[in-house]
Design a protein around this nucleic acid. Structure first.
Lengths: 144, 144
DNA sequence: GGAGAAATCATACGCAAGGATGACGCGGGG
DNA sequence: CCCCGCGTCATCCTTGCGTATGATTTCTCC
């Protein structure tokens, strides 16, 4: 800002000096203006690259390097959330896109039981919909 | 570039016109030059920020990162399945666990519209439930 | 300029899902 | 022994979801 102000002052002085030389020529004002334009366009460009360039954009690169031997890691998460094994079992089937009825048929229990487990699991996950529960489970690493 | 060229032409014309008005005044050249200076300084600054690609700093972040190296591949998959951009947009929100009502509020459309898009998308995916649609989408690489 | 795709919205119906509540049996610790 | 966590099942009720159908608008393409 200070530099810019100083430049302004210098320019005004320069301006006072140069106008006497240029005014005697025809079309001098056009040339004069063009010179000013070029000069300040350059100055602006320079300033733009100098002052605003350090803007860095952080780019996230997906690193495949997360095999993270999670064979029982989800079990820890499960315990921490107070989710029972049965509830997690049902959650996995929910994440597969099965309906409550299909889950019941798969696990040989009634649809009501599935609903009960779902309700409790959703409650512990802070989810109100099964899709939300799936999303939360993924974030928490509950699902492989 | 075209816009910049046009702006240049307009400026030259404006320059020709204004000089006759300003030349009769004392110090008019100074004001004129200052205007040009400010204008082109701004232009240069704008160009500087616009043309110079923001330097990117690559930061490696451990991300669940499905091994699938697809950057725009989902667009190909989308086309292949005949799923429209809007439908995919809604699918992504479905995968986030949002309800139809919330999706509508997010995209500023009615819940009915969301339902329509969902139905068509589910149909194209061969899914009958939203959870199933999410699962299918993940398998097909439709979702990041 | 008309055909068609896409997006938007509405209405209505049926079913799935979710919540609340109660109950029963089983197993393990206090 | 009795309590408690867990899994199981049921009923009632509300809400959300999915489908069908029709309409309008906008855009693109021929």
């Amino acid at each position: 800002m200070l530099i810019f102000g100083l430049a302004g002052g210098v320019l005004v002085t320069l301006l006072q000096w140069t106008e006497f030389h240029f005014l005697v020529l025809e079309h001098s004002v056009a040339i004069y203006g063009a010179l000013i334009a070029i000069l300040f366009a350059g100055a602006g460009l320079w300033l733009g690259t100098r002052l605003l360039a350090p803007r860095e954009r952080i780019v996230e690169i997906a690193v495949p390097a997360v095999p993270t031997s999670r064979f029982d890691a989800d079990d820890n998460v499960r315990e921490r959330l107070g989710i029972t094994r049965r509830e997690l079992e049902i959650l996995k089937l929910v994440a597969r896109g099965l309906s409550n009825r299909e889950i019941g048929a798969t696990l040989f229990v009634s649809e009501n039981t599935v609903k009960t487990h779902c309700s409790r699991a959703f409650d512990k996950l802070g989810a109100r919909r099964r899709t939300e529960a799936v999303q939360r489970s993924r974030e928490l690493g509950l699902l492989s």
